[in-house]
């Protein structure tokens, strides 16, 4: 058992490869999380224009990308785009797929946040002469983000986990590198290493999330 899953020799040998994977996972997260947040913010701001010509296409967009499995989306981009003459590479495909998929999720969260801010806040801001955009930026958004912080964090947690999908399109992130190491060493120990690293990477976020959720619950009483 220990030979197979916790083999010290293999750990030593696989460490540099797994470490490369870890850095790439972190790098990937640092790209796709802000990208998803940006996409989400744009969607939510568009949604605050309550015009039917904006609302319906937007709803269709969000529904579509929330219903579409991100793995399928990723494979479609990676395998399909070259036939349209676009050779983007795994990394770019992951970035686009996440922008579309997680952006839609972040968008719904931001939208709920914006809706949670009482209308009186905007009325007060507008009555002092602030424009619609200024009211959104200085009055509504700061409160909206604070109100949905647990959901934003929870979604971010999922996004970081989802970066492991990159392994399917040969992005050398943590899971991909661990599998490489496994196939070289004929031993599953590198996969165990990856699992432990994922846990150590995400556990602080999980703790932070429960603290935020508890505080949100306490704040309601």
């Amino acid at each position: 058992m220990i030979e197979a899953f916790f083999n010290i020799e293999i750990m030593k040998a696989a460490w540099p490869i797994v470490l490369t994977g870890l850095w790439n996972t972190i790098l990937l997260s640092l790209i796709v999380v802000p990208l998803g947040l940006l996409g989400g913010l744009i969607l939510a701001l568009l949604a605050s224009i309550k015009h039917p010509l904006v609302r319906w296409p937007l709803m269709a967009w969000v529904d579509f990308f929330r219903a579409f499995p991100p793995l399928v989306l990723l494979v479609l981009l990676f395998a399909g785009l070259p036939f349209a003459g676009l050779e983007l590479g795994g990394f770019a495909c992951v970035a686009i797929a996440f922008f579309l998929n997680t952006g839609s999720y972040y968008g719904e969260i931001f939208r709920a946040g914006i809706d949670s801010v009482p209308a009186g806040q905007v009325e007060a801001a507008r009555s002092t002469g602030l424009s619609r955009m200024q009211s959104m930026r200085y009055v509504v958004l700061p409160q909206a983000v604070r109100n949905v912080m647990p959901d934003l964090l929870s979604n971010t947690l999922e996004v970081v986990k989802l970066t492991s999908l990159g392994s399917v399109v040969a992005v050398p992130e943590l899971l991909y590198e661990a599998r490489q190491a496994q196939s070289i060493t004929y031993n599953p120990t590198p996969i165990v290493m990856a699992a432990v690293i994922y846990f150590l990477l995400l556990w602080p976020l999980v703790r932070l999330l429960s603290r935020l959720e508890n505080r949100a619950l306490a704040g309601r009483h």
């Binding site: 009482p118 009186g120 806040q121 007060a124 801001a125 009555s127 409160q143």
Partner: peptide, 15 residues
């Protein structure tokens, strides 16, 4: 609107 101040029943201060 800058020339017209308004005070609301529910204050509407930015929390």
């Amino acid at each position: 609107r800058r020339r017209i101040g308004m005070v609301f029943q529910s204050f509407n201060l930015y929390p």
